[in-house]
Amino acid sequence: MANVTFKGNAVTLNGTEVKVGEKAPNFKVLANDLSEVSLDTYADKVKLISVVPSIDTGVCEQQTKRFNEEASKLGGVEVLTISVDLPFAQKRWCAAEGIENVHTLSDHRDLSFGTNYGVVIEELRLLARSIFVVDSSNKVVHVEYVPEVTDHPNYEAALDAAKTAQ
């Protein structure tokens, strides 16, 4: 399992660590309208999955805004931001911040995504900051478990992987 800290303190990640080359695990999360969404929802498309602990905190906000800006340059790539925030809070935040190019999805109900991708922080019931790029055949082509949850991910590596996967 990835070694991850939150504010310098080690945390326990629950679930199954995902590795490059593996088939991406399916998951069930909620869209902002409470409809159920899964990996299959984005079949035959490249997916850049940006995982944040809570959408309206500093680094999470910056991460989501950055991928929202970059999404229009990625063409056929679906950019998903997943957190355990309630769908209503995600929708409100996106409206206030003008987020239109990213699908915000909530894993609050049963931590399906977090468990299947090994990012559930046991001590906080939040998701660890991470990035996954999945190609159109659902093969994982890029993984980053950010070692310190309060740090930014490597945006360029994720964006390059998404571009290459097209």
Results as ranks from 00 to 15, higher is better:
S112C: 05
D56W: 07
E122T: 15
E70I: 14
L124W: 14
H108V: 13
F113L: 08
A24F: 07
V79N: 01
L13P: 00
T12L: 15
D110A: 15
Q90P: 07
V4C: 06
T57M: 09
T64A: 10
T81E: 08
L111C: 12
K163A: 12
L124R: 04
V102L: 12
V52M: 02
D151C: 14
F132N: 04
R129Y: 01
R129E: 00
A43T: 07
I121H: 00
D85E: 04
L126R: 10
A96T: 14
K45A: 01
D151W: 09
E61R: 13
K45P: 01
T41Q: 02
V59P: 02
A71S: 04
N101M: 10
V77T: 06
S136N: 13
K23E: 09
A165M: 02
N138H: 09
L124A: 02
V46P: 11
Q63R: 14
A2W: 06
A2E: 09
T57H: 05
N9R: 02
D160V: 14
V140A: 04
I99C: 12
K91D: 09
T12N: 03
P53H: 11
H103I: 05
E70P: 13
F113H: 11
S35D: 10
V119L: 06
V140E: 00
V146D: 06
K47P: 04
A165L: 01
T16L: 13
W93D: 07
N9S: 15
D44P: 01
A161C: 06
S112M: 06
G76N: 09
S137G: 13
T115G: 14
V119Y: 04
E36I: 15
A31C: 04
K139N: 12
L30A: 06
Q90W: 00
K28I: 15
T5C: 13
S83R: 12
C94Y: 11
S72P: 09
D107S: 05
R92W: 10
A71G: 02
N116W: 12
L13F: 11
V120Q: 00
L13N: 00
V149P: 05
A96V: 10
E17I: 15
G114Y: 03
V143Q: 04
H142S: 08
A128T: 06
A157L: 11
S106F: 08
G15Y: 04
V146T: 07
V46H: 15
S130H: 05
V141A: 04
L34T: 01
T41N: 06
L30T: 01
V134M: 07
N138A: 08
A95H: 15
E61S: 12
E70A: 13
E70C: 12
T57S: 02
V120H: 01
S136G: 06
G75V: 07
T12W: 12
A10C: 12
A31I: 07
K45E: 08
N14G: 14
V134G: 08
I131Q: 07
N101K: 02
S54D: 01
